[in-house]
Design a protein around this nucleic acid. Structure first.
Lengths: 127, 127
DNA sequence: CAGTATCCTTTATGATACTG
DNA sequence: CAGTATCATAAAGGATACTG
């Protein structure tokens, strides 16, 4: 077996996965990919995210050096989030997922329909 | 704002994200990327996954047409999981995350250390 | 072997209220 | 505006027992 697929606790993939195998993080990264945003701006744009989750997600991404946070001493305070150089390289990778999704969504949807009808047919027989 | 970043319920990215922004799914995809595996083989390989989660994850991936399940009428039964053609294209994309992780894990770890020490320093001042 | 079913615990997330 | 704190609930996950 190759080193790449050892899923032990020290595996870097697992560490990074705990950050990005997360819907909110992916959405935040995608939103910040092109241009910086303020907190509530992000919140409105992502839409489905709560204040708590956004705050938590941004903090985690900042901790990992994926995004950076800059506060301006306005009244009230303005805070701008933006991708770091490191973050941008991750964002490009994550963006591939978006591209894959848009390209293959129809195939996936068809597969789901197929699977579901096969299942209900089986349920029919069992009854 | 570009179409790509509208996070409404119909967004294909969100639908796919609900599947792959998931640690177990990513691990299963990574494990099946190179060669087919049997259920318990996968379980041992991923290690940290429970029977319940593996079963659930594989079912979801099969439903989406990412992997396929083939049962052999041996005693006891043997079941082999493998990537579909569609799945393989996703796996390649997901594999980029693994590559990114291995390449940048040190930078991320450093960023975390930095962030944490800055935080504790602040806590020190507040006290 | 390859699961399913069930119960129980932990974690994630939402809603609400409050602050500099 | 940009959060934090707290409580409540829903969802995820683990452990165990059981089956073809």
């Amino acid at each position: 077996m190759t080193r790449a697929f050892e899923y032990n606790a020290d595996c870097p993939t697992l560490l990074v996965l705990d950050r990005i195998a997360n819907k909110w993080a992916v959405l935040a990264i995608a939103a910040l990919y092109r241009e910086p945003r303020r907190f509530n701006q992000l919140r409105r744009e992502i839409g489905s995210i709560s204040q708590k989750m956004l705050s938590q997600t941004l903090k985690g991404l900042e901790r990992d050096g994926i995004i950076s946070r800059q506060a301006f001493a306005t009244v009230p305070v303005t805070v701008e989030y933006s991708m770091t150089d490191l973050g941008r390289t991750l964002a490009e990778t994550v963006d591939q997922l978006r591209i894959w999704s848009e390209k293959n969504i129809d195939t996936v949807l068809d597969a789901q329909t197929n699977y579901d009808s096969a299942q209900s047919q089986y349920a029919e027989i069992r009854r």
